[in-house]
Design a protein around this nucleic acid. Structure first.
Lengths: 200, 200
DNA sequence: GACAAAGTTGACCAGTGGTCCATATATTAA
DNA sequence: TTAATATATGGACCACTGGTCAACTTTGTC
């Protein structure tokens, strides 16, 4: 089983991703239709759906590309982002990294949201965005370590949800993550205080 | 100037709002198109656009209807929701009320978001949702009173943004505001602590 | 070179939000 | 009542969307 992708298919996949990237850099998401991406990549529209399943799938793949680096730093990089630091410090570092990552890719996040909001054929039963799931697991785990008495999952949703808030997303798209990062820091300090600081 | 709305126009406006309400109760937002609303209300599609300007405008009007009561309680009702209580208590009460209001109208919020996300003709320059603006002003003002040292505006966005988070919105749509309300309380307590408790 | 598996394609579909204007109706003044 | 005018109406129409599919082409393998 598992034959690898044919050479022409791989070439087209790359062409499509690069074309989508380029178009998103120049235009707002709602103007980047699948047909335009296909044309810019020099392939037929059907090919895009073949490779990525849906407009949403295309955007998701694009996001996944940008996120791999952070995922790795979290899993096996040096503290405070990687394992080893106290939960509160890891959390602060992670949220800071997320804010900066989001600032570098604000338009892409917007495009992904737009794709989700306008999709016609709801994907197979509740296939949630795996990036979000993984971030949520991480944040929620860190909170739970430092403060076992609070509803860590719910609060993790609140913190991460910030990235989807239009007024804040606009700040990020403008390339200014500092304000969000500072607000994250304030909340982490208020919530975890010193509890999580020395090896919770 | 300012002639009042013609009688037939007023009748149709009500019919459209009620029809939209009804459809939204039975179907997910993406299945409630302007055309369907018009048909259910027994009017032509053009009439809906005439009255409400856009799909977004229709949803906004629907939301405004449900929100008036809370607005009034905040402006002139008894404490802790209304004026008079300490900022921390007012904030806790307000967020609790918002969570409960959202739980009663989760599908409507979703419909409004969907309308914004799928609109074709961007409304006149940045006409932001006035309901959101007013809530944000309130929350942000209360935080600033109790904690002049933090970025109240940004944190207010974070708190209110929660309502738009899909996993939490799903809880609310299912009619269970308690978990969100509790998380709000945790954060308010952590952030404002006792500072805002006795007449900030 | 043959052959199957994999990939490509663009016409096509059902549907959308929004526009337009000839037509119908409510209101007011005479 | 009627005539005049401002307002309201409806639905064909538009440009466009994400997504499908059956006929066709290319690739990799033996």
């Amino acid at each position: 089983m598992e034959r690898r992708e044919r050479a022409d298919a791989a070439r087209n996949r790359r062409a499509i991703l690069r074309a989508a990237e380029e178009l998103l850099r120049m235009h707002p998401p709602e103007q980047v239709s699948v047909e335009r991406v296909a044309a810019a990549a020099g392939v037929g529209k059907g090919t895009v759906f073949h490779r990525f399943g849906s407009r949403t799938g295309l955007m998701r793949e694009l996001m996944a590309e940008r996120v791999r680096e952070l995922e790795q730093a979290v899993a096996e990089g040096p503290p405070p982002l990687g394992p080893g630091a106290a939960p509160a410090d890891r959390l602060a570092a992670f949220l800071d990294a997320v804010a900066r990552l989001a600032a570098r890719n604000g338009n892409l996040i917007a495009a992904h949201e737009h794709a989700v909001a306008t999709r016609k054929a709801p994907e197979q039963p509740r296939q949630e965005n795996p990036i979000y799931l993984s971030w949520h697991r991480h944040v929620s785990g860190l909170i739970a370590q430092a403060r076992p008495d609070v509803d860590a999952e719910e609060i993790a949703h609140m913190l991460l949800g910030t990235l989807h808030m239009e007024p804040i997303a606009a700040q990020l798209r403008a390339g200014r993550p500092e304000r969000l990062a500072a607000a994250f820091a304030t909340l982490v300090r208020a919530l975890l205080g010193e509890e999580g600081r020395s090896d919770g």
